[in-house]
Nucleic acid binder design. Structure first.
Length: 370
DNA sequence: AACACGTGGGT
DNA sequence: TACCCAAGTGT
């Protein structure tokens, strides 16, 4: 039973009016739970405070597929350095990439910059307060548009993230697997969205999923909706939502070139603007393929002809969709080093570069073994 | 529609 | 160790 029609039971059909009342009652109970268990998060307006759309937007982008503890320090750094969307729009993209380094999904940073500039240039520096207009902005999809509408502007919107999908799947005992069942979950979620306190309700749903209706070992005893939860009634709460098995990750292999110049600076370069780690800084390397590069490939990809020496060990890293094994070779650049394509960065300035985590690993490996 | 796109923490 | 998971979006 995955649609929202009346269940085929002996109970009398629930009238529309009655189900509306039940939803309103459920929302009130959730909001009461929220008021009693409100978490203090860096981006969350305190009771009585007016939400700042810029901070709501920034936090929602950072929280996409990202845990609260991971996002929090980045949010503080960004808001301290760029307190307004105007300030962010005026900053060079490269400054954002340096500040975003380590947080992952770097398209978010590129879209963040594009979005800030669009808001300033086309919306007078103010975020639109309607879902449809927000949806037009780079980096803002269905979830984020609804979240900003509800949380920043106090307007009704159905906010559906992974937490909400889980809560709804359990309440209604939806057993069909994700992602195909997403539209159904969205419809069901919409039937419970109240007119009152849209922002608090959205955050309450997500908090409920994050702290009570958790993926494993849900704390049903603490749940304000436990008595109406179909999955709990049938003892399958922890198994929901069901998900299709994911394809396993292939392994790719490559070799990175740790090249030092006579001044003791290391050669880095900027990656392509789009795609994996787009616009970020890297230690030059061969292509990353299934098979490790042979001697010919090492010569073909070397940034400058030099006598390369392999460092012991290997850098391992796992991206969203593949494993990477990276060997590291090192050399001193001889005559002609000034003409090499890339940038020479003093070792003590590496922390000012837009180095993604995988490259931080390469740097650490080289410094430890070179 | 399915896949590309990061990272670090939990079990 | 290996897999799952986290306030998704773009193509």
């Amino acid at each position: 039973m995955t649609d929202d029609s009346s269940p085929d039971t002996a109970a009398p059909p629930v009238s529309e009016k009655m189900s509306e009342q039940m939803s309103a009652q459920a929302a009130a109970r959730l909001l009461s739970w929220y008021d009693r268990n409100r978490r203090d998060l860096p981006w969350r307006a305190k009771p009585g405070e007016v939400a700042d759309p810029y901070r709501v937007w920034l936090s929602e982008i950072m929280l996409q597929q990202t845990t609260v503890p991971a996002a929090a320090p980045y949010f503080r750094a960004f808001t301290q350095r760029w307190p307004t969307v105007q300030a962010l729009a005026e900053a060079p993209l490269d400054d954002l990439l340096v500040a975003w380094a380590g947080l992952g999904y770097y398209a978010r940073a590129r879209n963040l910059h594009a979005c800030a500039r669009t808001v300033v240039e086309r919306h007078g520096g103010r975020f639109p307060d309607e879902e449809a207009a927000l949806l037009e902005l780079p980096g803002i999809g269905a979830y984020t548009a609804a979240a900003i509408t509800a949380i920043a502007f106090g307007r009704k919107a159905t906010v559906v993230d992974g937490n909400v999908e889980r809560v709804i799947a359990r309440i209604f005992a939806v057993t069909d697997p994700l992602p195909a069942v997403k539209p159904t979950l969205r419809r069901l979620a919409a039937t419970r969205t109240p007119n009152q306190r849209p922002g608090d309700y959205a955050q309450a749903m997500m908090d409920l999923g994050a702290t009570v209706c958790t993926p494993r070992k849900p704390k049903c005893m603490l749940c304000p909706w436990s008595d109406g939860c179909a999955a709990r009634a049938s003892g399958i709460a922890e198994t929901l939502p069901r998900k299709l098995a994911k394809a396993d990750k292939p392994t790719r292999r490559g070799t990175a070139y740790w090249l030092l110049n006579p001044d003791g600076a290391v050669l880095l370069r900027r990656r392509a603007e789009r795609g994996l780690l787009g616009g970020m800084t890297e230690v030059p390397s061969t292509a990353w393929d299934e098979t490790a590069p042979d001697a010919a490939a090492l010569l073909a990809h070397q940034p400058i002809a030099a006598g390369w020496r392999a460092l012991p060990g290997m850098v391992r890293h796992t991206f969203s969709h593949f494993h990477l094994e990276l060997g590291v070779v090192t050399a001193q650049a001889g005559a002609g080093w000034r003409a090499v394509d890339g940038m020479w960065v003093p070792i003590d300035q590496l922390d000012q570069q837009a180095l993604p985590s995988v490259m931080v690993k390469v740097v650490r490996h080289a410094l430890a073994h070179a």
